[in-house]
């Protein structure tokens, strides 16, 4: 087995906020009928979190579930647990129309930490991130400058962001630029 490394190998930047590549994360795309009980119970038992409702993400440490679309779910696990989890998921769904794909190596994950995290993120995405409009637990797929991303808040000062691995460098540079000291807007 080759030595798996994440896109930016934990690169970090300290500015208005701390931007940090989170390293490897197991990710499994599940498409199918999200109201199906077999799908729900397999997903919740593999991730040990509650099943998310529309536009939500439940994530504890490296395990979680995110609602991607009306027929798509993202299952997150520690990196080395992903192949087995994907197998168990396929097994649970074998009698119904579904798709399970392990996409861990196609993604990069970032943390944006600090009291000004909302402000830094707001510079880059067309989403209202004011307190009360976007809260921990909510999950949003959107556009960051020119590339698709998805993010949610771990807590009031921490965003976690997923993008395609091929654009990890671009997203990191964007975030660092938005977090440059002296570029505060002070909108929140």
């Amino acid at each position: 087995m080759s030595n798996a490394v994440s896109a930016l190998q934990g690169k970090a930047y300290d500015g208005l906020v701390r931007v940090e590549e989170a390293g490897l994360r197991g990710m499994i795309t599940v498409r199918g009928n999200l109201s199906n009980t077999k799908l729900k119970s397999a997903a919740t038992s593999l991730s040990a979190v509650d099943f998310p409702s529309t536009g939500e993400c439940n994530c504890v440490e490296e395990s979680g579930l995110a609602w991607m679309s009306p027929d798509e779910l993202l299952l997150m696990t520690p990196y080395d647990k992903a192949p087995a989890a994907a197998q168990r998921m396929s097994k649970a769904l074998e009698k119904q129309h579904h798709l399970v794909a392990e996409v861990s190596d196609a993604r990069a994950v970032f943390f944006i930490r600090g009291p000004q995290a909302r402000e830094v993120m707001s510079k880059l995405v067309p989403v209202d991130l004011s307190p009360g409009r976007f809260q921990p637990g909510q999950f949003r797929r959107t556009r960051m400058a020119q590339v698709p991303v998805a993010f949610w808040m771990r807590d009031e000062t921490t965003f976690e962001l997923i993008c395609f691995r091929s654009v990890a460098g671009y997203v990191f540079d964007l975030l660092c630029n938005a977090a440059k000291p002296g570029s505060e807007v002070g909108v929140f």
Partner: peptide
């Protein structure tokens, strides 16, 4: 109408 998100034109 599917995800309930208020999306602007660029999205």
């Amino acid at each position: 109408p599917y995800c309930g998100v208020e999306a602007d034109e660029t999205e």
